[in-house]
Write a protein that binds this DNA or RNA. Structure first.
Length: 188
DNA sequence: CAATAGATCATCT
DNA sequence: GATGATCTATTGC
């Protein structure tokens, strides 16, 4: 995708990213679950507290990576949405592993079906080795990219409340590939 | 099965 | 000093 393809409201981009391919080096997966975070009015969004050292990339141009460290253990990957100055973003929550599975197994130290390799925000960053080193990276080219299929896969999008937050917890901003086996936690 | 505890630290008050 | 866009292991029915 081109940088300008990311330049749209987070709720739109979140749905557009479903069915796209996230690649880092030789590992790649298809995005099957996303969440939109809106900005100043969205108390669940990091950007709602204003521009800080951590969140500054959210206020920049779309199509860059916002990676943050959470719970002292995990990294989470977001795609910056919206125009420069509008801090919307999309959290990537789950992938269907496509290539580099052996590397993913090694990184995750996981012994189970491939479905469990990247079905969660903290799991997919571990599987693809995405860290704060990738903070601010552009996603249209380079080592870490988001690409669309030549022909977009057909599937149904389901909408649910976001997971793991306490504020604005009832806003319907989580989007999933309906009934896909690689969704985080229980399906819907 | 569901519920809970513990790991563990950057960021912001 | 408290908190958090999580995950895994363990405990309790």
């Amino acid at each position: 995708m081109q940088l300008c393809d990311f330049e749209r409201p987070a709720t739109e981009l979140a749905q557009q990213l479903l069915g796209c391919v996230l690649r880092h080096g030789t590992t790649a997966g298809m995005i099957v679950e996303t969440e939109a975070y809106l900005g100043l009015n969205d108390l669940a969004a990091h950007a709602s507290k204003g521009k800080t050292e951590r969140t500054k990339v959210l206020f920049g141009p779309a199509g860059h990576a916002y990676v943050y460290f959470i719970y002292g253990m995990y990294e989470c990957l977001n795609v910056v949405a919206d125009r420069e100055g509008s801090p919307g973003c999309v959290l990537i929550r789950a992938l269907e592993p496509l290539s580099g599975l052996d590397l993913m197994y090694e990184r995750r130290k996981w012994h189970g079906p491939p479905v469990g390799l990247a079905n969660g925000p903290g799991k997919l960053t571990q599987a693809l080795a995405i860290t704060r080193k990738e903070y601010g990276a552009r996603l249209d080219e380079g080592d870490l990219t988001v690409r669309e299929w030549r022909e977009k896969p057909q599937f149904e999008i389901a909408t649910t409340p976001r997971i793991g937050i306490t504020q604005c917890a009832d806003w319907p901003l989580r989007f999933v590939w309906a009934n896909h086996p690689c969704l985080s936690r229980r399906n819907s």
